[in-house]
Amino acid sequence: FHFVNDGIETALDQARDAAGDRDVRIAGGGATILEYVNAGLIDEFTIALSPVLFGSGIRLFEGVDAGHVALEPIRAEPTRRVTHLTYTVQKR
């Protein structure tokens, strides 16, 4: 893992350089996904949804720029403790 404070584009450029021809995975919470989705830099993402209530948080898709992107669900993989939800990001 590398921590980058120069913005999401710089972090993604460094990850692409390190990955070569392999896929790049970005780890983070809802705010991180939201930044990359709205910047048009994500083509697919997976959310690990666990039924644990902590009392507060953010609405994951609140703030998605629906005028520029659409989220298309492509896979849901449920287990007893977590459900993995995968979406593609389509440009509008």
Rank of each mutant, 00 (worst) to 15 (best):
P78K: 12
L49I: 06
A19F: 07
I74R: 08
E62D: 15
E62V: 02
A70D: 14
A70I: 05
E77N: 04
I58R: 09
N38R: 03
Y87T: 05
L53D: 06
L71T: 02
G63T: 03
A48L: 08
I26G: 08
V89W: 00
L71Y: 02
G67S: 11
A76D: 01
I47T: 02
Y36M: 12
G7P: 10
G67T: 12
E72I: 14
I47W: 01
E9L: 02
S56N: 08
E9P: 02
E35V: 00
I47V: 11
L34R: 13
I42R: 06
I26R: 01
E44L: 12
V24L: 13
F54V: 03
E77Y: 01
E72Q: 15
V4E: 15
F1S: 15
V52G: 01
V52E: 06
H84C: 08
V82S: 06
G57A: 07
R25L: 15
D13L: 05
V64T: 10
R81F: 04
E72F: 00
E62F: 04
I8K: 14
L53I: 13
L53A: 06
L49A: 13
H68L: 09
D43K: 09
T10W: 00
A70P: 02
R25D: 11
E9Q: 14
G7H: 08
R75P: 00
T79F: 00
R59Q: 10
G7Q: 09
L34E: 12
A31M: 07
G55D: 01
T32R: 03
F3D: 15
A27L: 15
V52P: 01
R92T: 09
T83R: 12
V37T: 10
L60H: 06
D65I: 03
L60S: 02
T32W: 13
D21Q: 14
T32S: 06
F54S: 01
P51S: 13
D13F: 01
F1E: 14
L85S: 01
G67V: 08
R80D: 15
R92I: 10
T32L: 13
G40I: 04
V82H: 03
A70H: 13
H68R: 15
T86E: 02
T83A: 12
K91D: 01
A39Y: 01
T83F: 02
